[in-house]
Write a protein that binds this DNA or RNA. Structure first.
Lengths: 245, 245
DNA sequence: AGCAGCCTTTGATTTTGATCAAGTCGCCGA
DNA sequence: TCGGCGACTTGATCAAAATCAAAGGCTGCT
């Protein structure tokens, strides 16, 4: 994991930054961005990296935890289930998102890795202390919450008012624009979700998802290989099919 | 509007509090709760009360504003529309909610009064200054955002995975538990939304909403008069039909 | 009172997506 | 290399909700 970064880093004063953090892909985007080297050191001393394999739960609906985490790489599904087992994925989180809400006293949702995922966990107590000490930190967390709220509301429009075709296209668009934390959008990518997951995200069945993907393929909106790898000739076209503008 | 409050107020130190605020129904629940009398005076000097009749837009999708508001009484619909006119209500706000997100530089959604509604508006600049000055204020706004996020995610489960019957029951349950800012739940209430609004909130058509309401009535889950007034003999029963545990 | 207009309900029919049921494909282990 | 298994696709049928269409019923106005 000791990758030497060939590009010049965005910040000059790398000197005092903890080693774990200076190599961290999520440092600038996550909560850590607002922290001084001292504070970063403080936090890093209490934080642990974890690798999570696909399907592994980070936290279950109704459980309690006392930690927060940053996603370093990978994709995490946030989902809710009804008593009878019907499931809905209510959010996807990508690097370098902060996972803050799953860890409230009692979690209202399940967080589960969709693919191999690395996260950086730190205890609630430490972050809470830092929030009290560092002026801009709560603001950062607030911004993250507002971003998630906007995304949730966008998705509500998708769930409530779009057709199956538009839903699937909307999903592919989300992935294309989020899968690569570096550059904005990708024309080609591996789907981080199985058909069953996609169905749970879109409020559809796997059969319908499969049929709609086939339809999009036949209409040349996307190309598929291996059923997991997708390429998108024209993002504009995909957006249009997704009913976005 | 000069109503004399017969009940003893929860706080003792009423002395320095601006008159407009001391009579305000939203003061304890809204953002104002964290402010000192001085700060409240500061804010109140720049704030204006507005009465909004049903159907009147407070802010439209894509517009810009420079104010926030507290809901004093009434109900506000937050909605999004697709290019072709399909609409989805993505949230309802009740007194004493803070309306913060609608007013970001460019609003991602439309806020519109569902019934006669009173709000207390204040300029972005003043609140932003107070946020910088008052330690707990951003936290309060953060909490509000997290509350809305939780509600949005709950609703996503409803939109994606519940049947029409469950959706309508879920809606009625939301209203029963939110319409009265004072006590928790009401067994009897006027619906703040028309059938068309309910349909837009549930991702259904008005015909389906109407049929499901009729069905709930015939099954004695609810009683209806005037098509707007609803009474609920058993909240537990309603919850159960709504698929809530 | 009588009428116009809107909101709501109800009915008949159609459509979309769900359900049921086989396959097919790719991958892993024997 | 061959099964076998899980994930995905495809097909046939069914059902829930949408759509199309026509009343009711309430409100406000003349």
């Amino acid at each position: 994991m000791q990758i030497v970064n060939e590009h010049r880093r965005k910040d000059i004063h790398n000197s005092d930054i903890p080693t774990v953090c200076s190599a961290c892909e999520a440092r600038h985007g996550g909560v850590c961005g607002t922290l001084s080297p001292d504070q970063l050191l403080d936090l890093s001393r209490h934080s642990t990296r974890r690798s999570i394999e696909p399907g592994r739960e980070v936290i279950g609906q109704g459980e309690t935890t006392d930690s927060y985490a940053n996603i370093i790489s990978g994709v995490v599904k946030l989902s809710k289930v009804l008593a009878d087992g019907r499931q809905q994925i209510v959010g996807l989180q990508f690097a370098p998102d902060f996972m803050g809400r799953p860890f409230t006293r009692e979690s209202a949702l399940t967080a589960e890795a969709a693919v191999d995922t690395d996260i950086c966990c730190f205890p609630r107590t430490v972050l809470d202390r830092l929030v009290a000490e560092v002026p801009g930190l709560e603001h950062r967390l607030h911004e993250q919450a507002l971003k998630e709220l906007d995304e949730a509301r966008d998705w509500m429009l998708t769930l409530g008012r779009k057709t199956a075709q538009e839903k699937v296209a909307s999903f592919l668009y989300i992935i294309a624009t989020h899968i690569d934390p570096e550059k904005g959008t990708a024309n080609e990518f591996d789907l981080p979700l199985s058909r069953a997951d996609i169905a749970d995200y879109l409020g559809l069945t796997i059969e319908t998802v499969s049929r709609q993907i086939t339809k999009l393929r036949k209409e040349n909106v996307i190309r598929i290989e291996n059923s997991r790898h997708v390429s998108v000739p024209s993002l504009d076209r995909l957006m249009h099919v997704a009913g976005i503008d």
